[in-house]
Amino acid sequence: MSTSSFLHLGKPASAVMQHGSAPLNVIVHPQCLFSILDHTLRRNEDQERVIGTLLGTRSDDGTEIEIKSSFAVPHIESAAQVEIDMEYHKTMYNLHHKANPKEVLVGWYATSLELNAFSALIQNFYSSVSDGTYPYPAVHLTMQADPRSEISVRTYISANVGVLPDKISESCLFVPVPHELRYAEAERSGLELVASAKNVETRDTSIVNDISNLERSVEQVLEMIDRVSTYVSSVIEGGNPGSVAIGKFLLQNLSLAPKVDAEELEKLFNSHLQDVLLVVYLSNTVKTQMELFNSLKRTAVLSG
């Protein structure tokens, strides 16, 4: 998700990472982004940005942080001061911890890309010794959630570099760190379903049954094969420059085809198919039996 402007800022990150305690990688789970967006939609009318707590897991050496969920924290921000309901944060964190014992506090989010003195103040709270992530750095995730512009996400950690001692509580250096999006295997089906609605005007979708899902997959595979064969033939004819990477990739995949005797394979398939049909037959019989039982009982009660 890194943008080109991010790369310019990347230099201080590598300098800090040498300290060892800084996270090398931040992994964001999509459901967390969704709940941040949901929070944005529910903000009070006059609120510019909303903030909340990020929760997740940290690898043993602290170099990898996975952000798994988040919750909103109410706050009031004016030109002169910022007020965050810390009591709320603590109670909510305790409740959340009960339901997700593995997830710990890793940082906080704000729904504007701007970093100001208030950000530093909040960041220092989240990375403090008493209630914060200390000794690990707190991750600050900013998300541009303005419907007029594209959504962008940035992640930072902080360092107390070059700060005057009397202003330490309200200043810190935000160091950008790279992040990536990752989702668990089991959540893929849900995410895929959500993603399937992205080009639909009504923004909704319904759950498809297995057989139409299979149909869609087969169609997709066919489409991909078509694309590949068009590409390959255009390379052979010289219309398109060939790419070594793609060539290697295709070759690698072709070699994955199993080498099984065709007759043997067919026999295996046949026996397997019979097994499946038998099981289906069995379940049908059970169902009929149940239906019969039920009807008999009804008549028994009605007549007796």
Binding site: M1, T3, P30, L33, F34, L37, D38, T40, L41, A145, P147, E150, I151, S152, L181, L193, V194, A195, A197, K198, R203, D204, T205, S206, I207
Partner: peptide
Amino acid sequence: LPLSIKNSHLATTLLQHLDSPAF
């Protein structure tokens, strides 16, 4: 009950962003 899933406008934007070639 018939169940459908709806994205908010912002969620749609996010999904489009995740799908963009830059990502």
